[in-house]
Design a protein around this nucleic acid. Structure first.
Lengths: 220, 220
DNA sequence: GTCTATATCCTGATAGAC
DNA sequence: GTCTATCAGGATATAGAC
């Protein structure tokens, strides 16, 4: 049989162990707070070998973050069916965004560190995914569905860009602010399925009642 | 005449220069990335004097962040009139939150760094402000107004806590993600008054249409 | 590829003169 | 209160044996 390829990362087995270890440490401490020694220890090797695989901390950080964000956002976008039905699209967006954030809380943490330091890596990755890709770029598809729904009189006219920002903001906020919110409002627990399902319903209701055309007003 | 007190921070003039300098450096680099040397240089003094005023980096960070967050959130809360009118309350909240974020973008940056490292300082400050204080605690007032509006049939029943999270999330997201968004969507500029006024309108409309009772249904 | 040992510089914090 | 000089340890990165 041919060569056994496990993850197809372009690094060997040790290289992958390093990436996993680096992921854990960067997540916990951020880029500046992370220590190459700590990453090597987490990977079960020493600093010299670490530098043999990745020339510098900067390189390692960029590689870890790019991989993490690419996997997350590609998966997210692929899971949102580019439906022409605005109601289904909104529901799918909220469902998928929250589900995936709750299954990948480390992504929020990475984004937090990254934004703190100006976000150069995230800007590249996300920009490429949102506007690039095969077929119709995802943002274009979203924008079209919103525009069509408004023209057909199903919803009132809304700015698709702002609607998108509102959706993202409402979904991601509780994850972002979790360390603070959980101390201020007991009961807020972003790992609790019940809380998240309620959060989904509240967001969907707010948005759907907030954009749908009033009854009797759909004579576009 | 009596002693001239300028800022009432509990430190002398040099202490205040240090706090200002530390604010700038912590803002740019975060706690781990900041260097005591850099802070001293920014303040025009040397490391020894810095340690004379503030025993450790940790102390200095806590003091800077506590001051920054306390001023911001106290000001924010005081500017939101605890109106019994839900529509006015929502509008005031959005107006004030966005105005104050746009005038104090550094607060978002501080919060970002702080949340990345687990948010212990922010948790204390915000918890104290939201639940403590004189008179009726602000969250209680908000919750009461929402509950009253639902009982009187002016809005549909909504969970006040989730409504609050949605409002905050929608307002703060564009500031938080600004470094990324401005690269992905040209035209997004959180220092542009026109953009922010549009953002306010879109949020208010979404929320207000999203919670108000439908016409003919207010016989609660 | 993996290790030990080391180079080189930087870090937060302190001692002690003025 | 403010400085120069310095400590003791830790940081990234490399040299070189195996």
């Amino acid at each position: 049989m041919g060569p056994v390829i496990e993850k197809e990362t372009g690094h060997g087995a040790t290289g992958d162990r390093i990436l996993d270890a680096a992921r854990v440490v960067f997540l916990e401490k951020g880029k500046a707070g992370a220590r190459m020694h700590g990453i090597a220890a987490q990977a079960g090797i020493n600093k010299a070998l670490l530098h043999y695989y990745f020339r510098s901390k900067e390189d390692l950080y960029r590689e870890v973050l790019t991989k993490e964000l690419t996997v997350f956002f590609r998966g997210l976008i692929e899971s949102i069916r580019p439906s022409g039905d605005i109601e289904a699209l909104v529901r799918d967006f909220i469902d998928n965004y929250i589900d995936r954030l709750s299954r990948n809380p480390q992504v929020v943490r990475f984004l937090t560190w990254e934004v703190g330091s100006g976000g150069p890596v995230a800007r590249n990755v996300i920009g490429g995914i949102v506007h690039g890709g095969e077929g119709v770029p995802i943002y274009r598809a979203f924008s079209n569905t919103v525009g069509d729904a408004a023209r057909s009189g199903r919803i009132r006219p809304v700015d698709p860009q702002h609607l998108l920002f509102s959706l993202i903001g409402m979904c991601i906020y509780v994850f972002l602010a979790a360390p603070i919110l959980s101390g201020v409002f007991p009961g807020v627990d972003t790992s609790d399925k019940t809380f998240l399902e309620k959060r989904k319903r509240e967001i969907f209701d707010l948005v759907w009642y907030g954009i749908r055309a009033e009854k009797g007003g759909n004579d576009g």
